[in-house]
Design a protein around this nucleic acid. Structure first.
Lengths: 205, 205
DNA sequence: GCGAAAACCTACCGACTATTCGCTTTTCGT
DNA sequence: ACGAAAAGCGAATAGTCGGTAGGTTTTCGC
């Protein structure tokens, strides 16, 4: 891949550039979480980081690219908490419930971001629409596989469809977030999720 | 309340004014449903109705007032389909499921509106925040009462908490909407809702 | 059919938006 | 320590936003 020419030296980024990018993405997560993508402004994000709007756009050349970065960071955070490489089983479900609890108590900003953006992105023209469609497909197949394994192991109650249980679990997760964000004291998301799962299982969680 | 003066005649609205207001509210529902309240513009709504922005603002003096009108119309539509005066019972739950099916097939715009606005309104500064908090409280107590009646009638499975079942039903409804809006063929909301309820009940729906 | 109020318009305001251009400052390999 | 590239900034672009001012047209009670 090295050119045969006089070895161009495209010069790398500065040492602290990666940190700056990270700061911007964190601020972007906050702003998009409270105002959504469409109403959240680059100016406000730049203000939070403490730089000018033009300076920010040196790192992300437009708003959509910034959104992509924010979503990528979000995925990194989630997958570093759940073991997606392990074979799907009841441990997958347990990990999912733990993640819900972790998000609510340690990174509530992520909950806001997901809730607001996923609703906004239901519009087919939204720049994050395809991302959310793909992501829901992936989570669905992931959870469905877990419930299918559990059925084979006799851990699923009679008459429960694995795919429907997976869809229900995702829906329950999303819906609880709305109620929780509207009133954070009225609800324990992980507890309600266990209440949902209990009648579906023959074993304890 | 009548002044003792020469009987002012404040003159009523024109005959077709009520219709115009209605047209505006319908258009507002559509625009807010696809773009949300913050990004949806009065100009676009006026364009849909076929009038100028200033003309629209003669009927609703500002954007928040228009939003209030849209939410009010939405409530009228919902309550004209569910009998809220009848005593809470399993019929309440059945009506709720029927309403979900009706919304999905007859007025999908209402589903979009609820999904997008409820997520947007989780922010405490949102002009519809208080509305959604109050509405969720009301629906919650309504459904909780229904499940409590069912428990007294032996229609609730053992170990099911009525309030938790009500919260779960609301969450399931909201969450299914997101998945359905992302891919309307991948899901039957009413069917999934019945799958959620079945393990909670000792009787058929 | 007169007149007053309602309905509606064009034009405009100030504030905000994303993005671009040209310039200065900072970094860092050589 | 030189110089080129990266990082950052101020200003300007063209566009949209909610809302207002002032005038014109339509309605309708009398």
């Amino acid at each position: 891949m090295i050119t045969s020419e006089t070895a161009r030296k495209p010069r790398g980024a500065y040492a602290k550039t990666a940190g700056r990018r990270r700061e911007i993405l964190e601020a972007g997560m906050d702003v998009f979480a409270t105002n959504g993508f469409r109403s959240g402004s680059i100016r406000e994000i730049a203000e939070v980081v403490g730089m000018s709007q033009a300076g920010l756009l040196h790192h992300f050349s437009n708003k959509n690219e910034l959104l992509a970065g924010v979503l990528e960071l979000r995925d990194d955070r989630a997958t570093e908490y759940v073991d997606t490489s392990a074979p799907a089983s009841i441990e997958t479900i347990r990990g999912f419930v733990r993640l819900i609890d972790y998000n609510a108590h340690q990174v509530p900003g992520l909950v806001e971001l997901h809730c607001v953006l996923s609703a906004e992105a239901t519009s087919p023209e939204h720049p994050a629409h395809d991302y959310f469609v793909r992501r829901y497909d992936w989570v669905l197949s992931f959870l469905t596989a877990a419930f299918e394994t559990m059925r084979a192991d006799g851990q699923l109650a009679a008459g429960i469809d694995p795919a429907s249980a997976a869809r229900g679990m995702i829906a329950m997760s999303d819906g609880l977030q709305v109620q929780w964000l509207l009133n954070r004291d009225a609800l324990d998301m992980a507890e309600e999720m266990r209440n949902y799962l209990r009648p579906l299982l023959t074993v304890e969680l």
